[in-house]
Design a protein around this nucleic acid. Sequence first.
DNA 1: CAAAACCTTACGGAATTCCGTAAGGCTTCA
DNA 2: TGAAGCCTTACGGAATTCCGTAAGGTTTTG
Lengths: 221, 221
Amino acid sequence: MFRKVLIVDDHATTNDAVNSILSNLGVQTIQKALYCDEANLKVQKAVLDNDPFDLIITDLSFKEDHRESTLTSGEDLVKKIRSTFPDLAIIVFSQEDHFQIVRTLVKKCGANAYVWKSREGNRELPRAIEAVYNGDLFVSRQLERALHQKETTEITDYDIQLVSLLANGYSKKEISSFFKSENILPSSISSIEKRQNKLQDQFGAANVTHLVTLMKDAKLI
Amino acid sequence: MFRKVLIVDDHATTNDAVNSILSNLGVQTIQKALYCDEANLKVQKAVLDNDPFDLIITDLSFKEDHRESTLTSGEDLVKKIRSTFPDLAIIVFSQEDHFQIVRTLVKKCGANAYVWKSREGNRELPRAIEAVYNGDLFVSRQLERALHQKETTEITDYDIQLVSLLANGYSKKEISSFFKSENILPSSISSIEKRQNKLQDQFGAANVTHLVTLMKDAKLI
DNA sequence: CAAAACCTTACGGAATTCCGTAAGGCTTCA
DNA sequence: TGAAGCCTTACGGAATTCCGTAAGGTTTTG
C-alpha cells in the first residue's frame, strides 16, 4: 500500500473523510494541504528530506483568498506535479463531472485516477487507491465514457478559447485582431462568425450570450 | 442539545464528517438524505410517526440525476421546510459564499444559520449548532457582512430576472414583450437597455455577454 | 488523379445593439 | 409648495451582429 500520502482540499470535511479511508487502508503517513501552493511546497520539501510522498489526492476547485498564488487550481497542481515528479501517483477527487474536464485531467495532465465526489465517492475512492497502487488507471464508472466515446462534434481548444474571449466581452473584430497577432488560425471575422454559429447550433443556443451561458453551465469555460 | 437531526448532502464525505460532529455533541438520532425530495419525505414521515426532527443541516447545490424532482436545490428545500414546519431549525452548510445567496437564505427563506464550507467549516459548524439550539442566528464570520452592509447599488430581483432572460438568449425586444405580458415594470425597450447599461457599469462589463459572465461567476444568476 | 466535401475568407443587406439626447412623470428634499 | 433629481419611455444615428451567398484553397474519398 502507499506509504506517504498528501491530501489537498480546502474543505475540512473532505480532508477528514479521506483521512479515515487512508487510515483504514493502512497508509502510514498522511499529511494535508489546504491550497495548491502549500501542496507543491510540501511535495518539494519531502523530496529534499529524502522522504517523498508516493500519492497525492487532490480536489480541483479551491476558494480564492488573499494569498498570492502561483497555482490556483487543482489542474495547475496536477500539471506541475506531473511535470516535476513523473512517478508520483495522482488521484483527482472532485465534484466536477464534465467529460471534457475528466479527459483533460487524465489524458493531458496525467492524473492516474479521477474519482467523482458523488454519492458513491466514499466507496470508489478506496477502489481507486488500490487500482493506482497496482499501476492501473481508474475513473469513476459514471465518467468512464469521457475517455472512450469519441464525440463527432468535439469541442476544440480553439472553440473554448474563442468563446472564453466572447464571454470576457471582446467583439469578434477584437478577437480577429488578437488571433492574427497571436498567429492563431483561422483568424478572419467570417471564420470566427461561422465557428460561433456552429457552436450555437451544437448547443442549441439562440445567440452568443446564450451560448456562453450554456458553456459555463457545462463548465467548458 | 438537539435530539433528532437530518443531514442533507449528496457528498458522502460531508455526510460522514457532519455525522461525527453531531455525535460528538451528543445528538441521539442522526439520519441522512442524499437529495431534497428524500429529505422532505423523511421530515414529513417523522411528523406522522410523532417523532419529528428538530434540526436539518443542508447543502445548497445537488447533482442533478435521473429522478423526477420537485425540490431541486437546497434553497427549494429550505423554503419548503420553513413554510411547512416553522419551528424546525435549519442550518445551511454550503460552499456558496456570495452575499446575495447568504442574504436570501437567511432573510427570505428563513434559515437559522449559514455556515460556509470553508477551511474553518468544521470548527464553525459545532458553534452554529450550539447557537441555533440557544435560539440565536448564526452566520460564518466571513459572511456576516452579507446581512449588515447595505449596498448602495443593490442588485434587485428585477435585475436578476432581466439578466437571466438575456443569459437565456432572449433579445431586449422579446424581454420587453414578456415583461409587458407579465405586467412587470418597467417594460420598455429603452428602460431595459438603460438598466442593463447600469449593471454593466456596476460590474465593469464591456457588453451584455461579459455582464452575464460576471454575474454567473458571482453566482447571481 | 479527379471529384466531392469542407474550411476559410470576403461581401452585402437586414436586424439588433450601442450610445446619446430629450420629454414627461414621479419622488425626494429644502 | 416648488425645485431638483431620478426613472421611464421614445427617438435617431452609428456600430455591430446576424444571415446568406460566393469564391478559392485544402482535405478527403472513390
